[in-house]
Amino acid sequence: MSKWMLIPCAVLAAATTVTAQDARQVVAEAQARSTTKSQRYEGRLQVVDAGGKTSEKRWTYTRLGSHGASKTIIRFTGPAEVKGVALLIVNFPDRASDQWMWTPAINRERRIATQDRRTRFFGTDFSFEDLEERDVDHHTYVMEGEETLEGERCWRIASTPRPGRRSQYTRSTLWIRQSTYSFAQVENFNGSTLVRRLRYRDMASVQGIWSARTLEMHDFTRNSRTILTLESLTYDVPLRDDQFTVQALQRS
C-alpha cells in the first residue's frame, strides 16, 4: 500500500518552523520521515455509498521495504464471503506494480490486471493508481502557500506528474502539516474537476513516526466515501523476502 497514505510522516520534535521552503524539499522530507523497513496493521475498510449504505471488510496488512521497492500482502479476514482471499502487491520504482490474488474457493492464484490504473480497488473509492507508491521524483512541485486545515497549519503544494509519467490525474494539491511533516490532505484533479480527496486523520506517533490511523477517501464522481481504520499498527517488524512470494500467498 502507498506510504503516502498509510505511513504518515514522523514528527521531528525539534523541528523549527519553516516559513518559506522549497516545495520539493517538503515532500522529500515527508517521505524521509515516513520511511521504515516494514509495517503491519489490521485494517477495517468501510465503504459508504451515495445512498448512505455501508459495507465493511477487514484485512491484515503486511509490508516489507519502502518507497517504490516494497512488497505487500493483504489478507482479507472478513466478511465471510471474502475471508481467506489474499493479495500480493510488488511495487517497483519505475513502473506499475505487479499484483496477484489467491482465491481459496478455487484453490489458485491469479494475476490481477491493473493496466487501467483508474480501476477502483475492489469496490472501494481508491483506484489502483491511488495505491501505488509514489516517489518524490515522479512529480514536480510548486509551493502555493500555507493554510490551516482542521486546526493545523499546513503547506499547500501543487503537484504535477513529470512529462512521460501516465496518470489519471492532471494535477494534485497536497497539504502537509508543518508541525510533523505528515500529509493532511491530497486533492486529485482531472482538468479543473476535483475527482478524489484523501484525508489523513487520527494522527498518532507510532514508534516515533507520526501516522494517520484513519484515512478517508471521497470520490466526488460517485459521491461515495471509503474510510480505512488502522489498528495494531507497528513498524519495522521482522519479515523475510520469502514471505512475499506467490507461493507464500497460498499459505494462510
Binding site: G51, F76, V82, V85, A105, I106, R110, G123
Partner: peptide
Amino acid sequence: DAAVLDDPLVFLAQP
C-alpha cells in the same frame, strides 16, 4: 447487492 456488484473481490472470491 451494490457491495457485491461494485466489489469484484466478492465476485472473484466466490466462484
